[in-house]
């Protein structure tokens, strides 16, 4: 059975990517199961989608623990532990990353032996508004399996998106076929894994839950300090930057509009954004009277910091 896992952010079309690949397998005569998995239903939040394809009915369900192929639509997710991009990765697992960081560099960063393929990532775009990245990823994944034809892929995109207007469908087909063509040299390199055996299994480390005081065991969250611990800044795909030259210190504006209380006032009276917690909603940029808050894609700001 093929087990393929997609990783992206809400808004990047990962559910559609999974469905396109699922439909393509199905059109090629496979038994298929595809399912998206959401956490927080918000644009920019990490989400995954699972595609299983085999020759007999599929009994496994839910998250794929040992994928044959991992497809990452957004390279900023790779270092985010909560996104679990590398969960269950083995030497045999192939990885596709939509990124303009090159493959040797990824190998060095991740210290893994898996084959890594990169797809060209569009620049200067809000990554949560890349409606075509899913099709690109699905096309690339289809090629690596070697069991899906170009015509089938096109048909699968058509089936999944038939309710959209023609230009959207065409654009998606073009991207999917582009992904398919880019990995032509690696056709058929993703191999179906054999079924794991029940012999010599690793027993689960079950424990007896201790009976604990309600102080601990009631599902209560105490006060605002918890928000400090949860670094929601990881959700950000676009970064607001305050240009102090144009700022007229009306911090009650941006400071009160920010729904995450991520803007504080520094000793000189200037606003300061806490990027550990700013989710990138850009309300501050919309509200700032002299337009002193500019917006750049998060990935560019990471590169700037590194430079």
């Amino acid at each position: 059975m093929y087990r393929i896992r997609f990783h992206g952010r809400g808004g990047q079309g990962m559910k559609t990517a999974g469905r396109i690949l699922g439909s393509a397998f199905f059109l090629e005569g496979f038994e298929v199961q595809d399912s998206p998995r959401y956490g927080a239903e918000r644009r920019g939040a990490p989400l995954t989608s699972a595609v299983r394809a085999g020759r007999s009915p599929i009994y496994e369900r839910g998250i794929i623990l040992k994928p044959d192929l991992i497809v990452v639509a957004d390279d900023t997710l790779v270092p985010v532990p909560a996104a679990g991009v590398l969960q269950g990765v083995e030497d045999r697992t192939a990885i596709i990353i939509d990124s303009d960081i090159n493959e040797p560099e990824w190998h060095q960063r991740l210290q893994i032996n898996s084959v890594i393929h990169t797809l060209p990532a569009p620049k200067d775009l809000d990554r949560a508004e890349m409606p075509y990245v899913g099709s690109l990823c699905a096309g690339a994944a289809a090629r690596l399996t070697g069991v899906i034809s170009r015509a089938t892929l096109e048909q699968a995109v058509l089936e999944e998106l038939h309710e959209f207007k023609e230009s959207v469908i065409e654009e998606n087909i073009e991207r999917a076929l582009n992904g398919f063509d880019l990995l032509a040299d690696y056709e058929g390199t993703v191999i179906e894994n054999t079924d794991p055996t029940a012999l010599n299994y690793q027993p689960p480390q079950w424990i007896d839950l201790p009976n604990e005081s309600v102080n601990l065991a009631g599902p209560a969250v105490h006060g605002g300090a918890t928000s400090v611990e949860v670094r929601t800044g990881l959700w950000r795909t676009m970064r607001p930057i305050i240009e102090l030259d144009h700022c007229n210190k009306c911090t009650w504006v941006c400071g009160s509009f920010c729904p995450d209380s991520a803007i504080s006032v520094d000793p000189d009276g200037f606003p300061e954004i806490d990027y550990d917690h700013c989710k990138g909603c850009l309300i501050c940029a919309a509200q700032c009277p002299p337009h002193a808050i500019s917006v750049i894609p998060e990935r560019d700001s990471i590169e700037k910091e590194e430079a």
Partner: peptide, 8 residues
């Protein structure tokens, strides 16, 4: 729990 109880 460590996070939920930090302020407490």
């Amino acid at each position: 729990q460590g996070i939920a109880h930090v302020e407490k």
